[in-house]
Amino acid sequence: MRPVITRTLLVASVLLVGCYANTVTSSQQIRKDGWLASHANVRVVRETKVSDDLLRVDVEVENTQPFNSRFNYKFEFFDAEGRLLFSPVSGYRQEQVAAGAFSTVTATASDPRAADFRLTLTNAN
């Protein structure tokens, strides 16, 4: 799928879903490899604040393949100056997603200085 169409779809879906403080992130924030590069659509990215000042990110990943798949993902948080923030619970998690279905992966920064994030999606099949 072309990047322009992807972005258009992304924006459109965000507008459809958009209920609170949604942000569409740049493609640099989300990195993919393996089957995910071509068959995982990141449909919605939501950035909100929980517990007053902690950044929470929700990302919906769609499996466009005709079979169930598995992927690893990792969130990292950065402060306003782009410095990586340490987290005792950061690391790769694994998620299963059925054929043609969505899976929502989330993360909450434990440091109130978190201003940006990076999500890495990698193949686990």
Binding site: S51, S90, A107
Partner: peptide, 18 residues
């Protein structure tokens, strides 16, 4: 780490600490 992450996200989202 996975388990701690899961419960922490729930705790932060609950607002109980406030």
């Amino acid at each position: 780490s996975n388990a701690a992450d899961q419960v922490l996200q729930q705790l932060f989202a609950s607002g109980a600490l406030e």
